[in-house]
């Protein structure tokens, strides 16, 4: 244990944790953009948009995330090569971010949709009677209230992403779990790195919950 716990190795793992956090952060943001678009698709009157958005949600929620990560890393380059004839070297970090974002986007679609439906109809009607257009209404009135309603499940989603980012280790992205495995190999000791990794994951998720509770309290001034 003491051998492994030197500053150099600790920095190595913390750097991995930084990547995990960055991936989770990027995925929650991109997933949110995807979620808003897909929620709009699901709620639109167009049958085509409806079907596309539903198919997206069902596919990404209904297949294993590890499969999605591998598909983006190993499958998509093959498709690319068949179409263009050029080989593509996938960057594991970018691929990982994409896979996490699309997966999270599917869950966030449903969250955002329920959040929007949870906003009182009167808010929509007030906009209508004042002549406020759809885009302004969504941006200024409906989405801010919808997001406020779904902060708790969004925080759970972020915590899930911090943990699920470990799946990216399978394609060689040097995040926290992969860092732990590298040290394990080096020292022929997997126990200590895994325990350290677990402590770091736990610290990250507990801090997230704590920050979220504070933010929620701050936002409740208008309640």
């Amino acid at each position: 244990m003491l051998d492994i716990l030197n500053p150099e190795n600790l920095m190595f793992m913390l750097k991995g944790a930084g990547f995990s956090l960055l991936l989770a952060f990027g995925a929650i943001l991109f997933g949110c953009v995807i979620g808003v678009i897909m929620a709009a698709g699901k709620m639109s009157r167009s049958r085509l948009l409806n079907a596309l958005a539903s198919a997206y949600v069902e596919i990404f929620r209904g297949t294993p995330m590890l499969l999605q990560v591998l598909f983006f890393y190993l499958g998509v380059p093959v498709i690319y090569q068949r179409i263009t004839g050029v080989r593509m070297n996938a960057n594991p970090y970018i691929v990982g971010l994409l896979a996490l974002s699309f997966n999270s986007g599917a869950y966030q679609t449903e969250l955002i949709r329920s959040g929007i439906n949870g906003v009182d109809r009167g808010q929509w009607e007030a906009c209508e009677t004042l002549g406020i257009g759809y885009a302004t209404m969504m941006k200024e009135i409906i989405l801010p209230q919808a997001f406020k309603n779904i902060i708790p499940p969004l925080v759970s989603e972020f915590i899930m992403l911090i943990k699920d980012s470990s799946l990216i280790s399978s394609i060689g992205a040097l995040e926290l779990l992969y860092a732990a495995q590298v040290l394990g190999k080096k020292y022929y000791d997997y126990l200590d790195p895994l325990i350290i990794a677990a402590i770091i994951y736990l610290t990250l998720t507990l801090i997230t919950s704590w920050v979220a509770r504070r933010v929620e309290r701050r936002l409740s001034v208008s309640d």
């Binding site: 009182d120 009167g122 808010q123 007030a126 009677t129 200024e140 009135i141 209230q145 406020k148 208008s222």
Partner: peptide, 13 residues
């Protein structure tokens, strides 16, 4: 102009 029974003020404003 329209005034509602339940006011419908924008809660986040």
């Amino acid at each position: 102009g329209f005034v509602f029974q339940h006011f419908n003020l924008f809660n986040n404003k």
